[in-house]
Amino acid sequence: MSALLFALALLAQDPAAATDGAAPTPAPEAAELPYPAGAPRDDYGLVSWCHGALTGYVELHDRVMPEVKRIETTYRAPGSSLAADMKVYADMNKQAQKDLKLFANAMEAAERASIKPLNTIGAAAVQRGRGSWSAAANLPPARVAQEWMSWTPPARCAPTAQRLEKNAKLLGAAFDPGAEMAPADPMAVTAVTSETPVNP
């Protein structure tokens, strides 16, 4: 199949075998992951952007699947199963639905907890994310299918959504969607305002 199956195969490996017996490397924190190009830098804006980008991906599913099947049928690796490869895309679609719910829950928690209205900011970021797929309307079906087959939500999206929802619930009415959590002591949590501007 494509590089996607290769990446999935690597993820499925035994961690000890993949590192020659060394302890597996822990997953990076969200703060260590790169921002997607054109995405806002605050947590709420980023999660909204991720929701839009993933929505655009999901909306292309029915359009691209005939071409995806044609590509997978035409370029078969020896001994591979078309049914197994197509199941990967079905699994990706199920995961996309779960991620959309995660992003929506985080956005809703932030909107409920924020002392200022966020809806218009979130709607604009969603549209920006969805706009990352706007070129698909003018590209050949094979090209759109290839891009779609290899795309996954940016790695920063899910952990940022989890942090956003957690912060919103912990801080309640004092919630600032651009703030970072900084525990002062085990019994207290304070917000430190981020100086990072949101991309225009």
Rank of each mutant, 00 (worst) to 15 (best):
L171G: 06
P159H: 07
S134C: 03
A135G: 13
S48H: 08
V189F: 13
A137T: 15
V144P: 00
F6V: 12
L8Y: 11
A161N: 05
A3L: 14
L164D: 05
N119D: 13
A18P: 05
G21A: 07
L171T: 05
A83I: 06
P159E: 04
H61Q: 08
P154F: 01
W133H: 01
R156P: 03
A23F: 12
P177L: 02
R76P: 04
A12R: 15
G56T: 04
E29V: 10
R156L: 07
P117I: 02
W151K: 00
P186R: 11
G38L: 10
L102H: 02
K169G: 01
Q97W: 03
L46C: 12
E29N: 12
N105E: 15
E108D: 14
P141M: 06
P141G: 06
T74C: 06
A27R: 13
A184C: 08
D14S: 13
A17V: 13
G52E: 05
A136I: 00
K166Y: 05
E180I: 12
A16N: 09
D43W: 06
H51G: 02
L60N: 02
L170F: 11
S150T: 06
A18Q: 14
G38N: 11
R130G: 07
A84Y: 03
A124D: 11
D62S: 14
W133P: 00
A136V: 01
A188L: 11
R76L: 14
A179H: 10
T73G: 04
